[in-house]
Computed example of a mutant assay.
Amino acid sequence: MTVGIGVGVAVLDQSTKWWAEHALSLGERVPILGDLLGLQLIYNPGAAFSLGTDATWIFTIISAVAVGVAIWFTLRVRTLSWAIVIGCLGGAAVSHLGDRLLRPPSVGQGHIVDFIAYGDWFIGNIADIFIVGGVVAVLILATTEHDRDTAEAPQ
């Protein structure tokens, strides 16, 4: 189930990126909710808020590690709630790793396709939504005694 969710998240993210590249003009903003939410295609070499634009290869390594961690947790997950969360985070990490490895300008230094503009704060994509939601869910699950006890790996 975790793998299926992860595949679904990765396919959804890559499909919407494909759509954005074919439907939007680079840099041009299309308002959806005035200035609050819009569509704007950019290629981000860095991380959130375009931080670390000169260190793209570091984000490739971080994405690869995140995929490895997701695989490790997938093999140990014991509850439905954790399976969903790990699937969401793993799928987003796989999608971002794919961008880093397969998109221009080069292998390992590919730029992430971002197209959801949140005011003047930042521009992201579907995988980013799953990452933020997944992190919030991890915090909730980790602080919930019942889920924490049942999500531990077998000894």
Rank of each mutant, 00 (worst) to 15 (best):
D35S: 14
G87S: 05
S50R: 09
G91S: 02
Q40I: 00
F49T: 01
Q109K: 12
S106C: 07
L24I: 13
G98W: 13
S106D: 14
S50V: 01
L80F: 12
L75H: 09
G46T: 01
S81P: 00
D54E: 15
I58P: 00
H22K: 14
S106V: 09
R78M: 05
T74F: 09
S50N: 14
G68F: 09
A66Y: 10
D99W: 03
V69I: 15
P104H: 04
K17E: 09
L80A: 12
H96F: 12
I62C: 06
G108I: 07
H22T: 13
W82H: 07
S63H: 09
S50D: 14
V85H: 07
L24G: 05
H22E: 12
L102F: 15
T53L: 04
S50G: 07
E28K: 14
N44K: 10
R78G: 00
L36H: 11
V69H: 05
A83S: 15
G87Y: 03
A47T: 04
W57H: 10
A20N: 06
G46M: 10
A93D: 04
D54V: 01
L24N: 10
I32L: 15
V77N: 02
A64C: 07
L51N: 12
G68L: 08
G98P: 02
H96A: 08
F49D: 07
T56E: 01
G52E: 03
A92K: 06
H22N: 15
H96M: 08
Q109D: 11
G110P: 06
W18E: 12
G34L: 05
W82M: 12
S95K: 04
A93N: 01
L39M: 11
T79R: 08
L36A: 15
P104N: 07
A47W: 10
A93C: 07
A23V: 09
I32F: 11
S25M: 13
F73P: 00
G108K: 11
I61G: 10
V65L: 14
E28M: 11
V67F: 05
G34H: 09
W19I: 08
Q109V: 10
V77M: 00
A55D: 00
S25I: 14
S63R: 06
L80Q: 11
L26C: 00
R103N: 13
W19F: 09
R29A: 14
P105N: 08
A83I: 05
A64P: 05
I61L: 14
A23P: 06
T60I: 03
I32K: 02
A55I: 14
I42C: 06
E28F: 10
A70C: 13
W82D: 04
L36Q: 13
I71W: 14
G38D: 10
L97C: 04
V94I: 15
R103E: 04
T56W: 03
G91F: 03
P105M: 06
G46K: 04
R76F: 02
I62Q: 01
P105A: 05
L97W: 00
R29N: 11
A64R: 01
G34M: 06
Y43H: 15
V67N: 03
T79V: 08
K17T: 06
W72D: 13
V107R: 01
Q109M: 11
S95H: 07
A23T: 13
T60A: 08
T56N: 00
L39S: 06
I61V: 15
V94E: 02
H96L: 09
L33K: 02
V77H: 01
V65D: 08
F59K: 01
G90M: 08
P105D: 07
L101S: 08
L101E: 06
I61A: 14
E28L: 11
A47G: 12
H96W: 08
